[in-house]
Amino acid sequence: MAILVEGVAKRYISRGREVEALAPVTMTIEDGAFVAFLGPSGCGKSTLLNIIAGLLPASAGRVVHDGAVVSGPNRRVGYMTQVDSLLPWRTAEANVGLGLELQGVPKDRAAARIDEMLRLVKLEGFRRHFPAELSGGMRKRVALAQVLAYDPGTLLMDEPFGALDAQLKLVMQHELLRIWENTGKTVIFVTHDIAEAVALADRVVVFSARPGRVSAVHEIDLPRPRDVFRVRFQPRFQELCETLWAALEPDMLRQEDAA
């Protein structure tokens, strides 16, 4: 079982012109893999993620997830967005329990699961707080607990830690790796941060812009388990970052020109 991306492309019409947001992509994401989509903005990495999530229809090709073609919201995945997707009128615990509630899990079992998740992200003391009363980092942790609570086999994450400060970002990356190592979930992680992609992923898919397309795929051969705090001081980490920078550079500089 795996996620098969078969010739998926996305075009849309803008001001009477057809724009290619994503040139045809084919790839296989095996079960339990940690894959990062890396690239500048406008390169189609979030577009592909949304197509895998079933939130955006592909213009061509198809996504097959565990043998089933994705058409409409993909319920095999948990999706953590860049923007806050917590429901503001629900407390932290009610947000964490949302997926369980929607899937009809009995109340007592759901309550136990919510406790477990809040412990996992270390927010037991904030269960009755509303999102507006939590800090940005806490909200991210609630969002993480929310997607983990109903135990989807695959996590799609769209720059989930993009808005956090550098330290908090490391802490969240650490938590994510720990959870991934313990659960064996498949993770697709969209980012524009080279160091983040190298520190977390087994494989980095590099996207480039105009038109959005996959320009390179690099395997990250750093040993597991990784320590996100120290891995960046390894020579191999630096090498991989350089390789990825070389792959991204033409695009980045072109973007500079355009701006």
Partner: peptide, 19 residues
């Protein structure tokens, strides 16, 4: 964003309305 989150988590149109 809230609508999509609920749909991915398995919510139908009735759940969407209520939640």
């Amino acid at each position: 964003v809230h609508v999509n989150a609920v749909r991915i988590m398995g919510g139908g149109s009735w759940a969407l309305l209520r939640k």
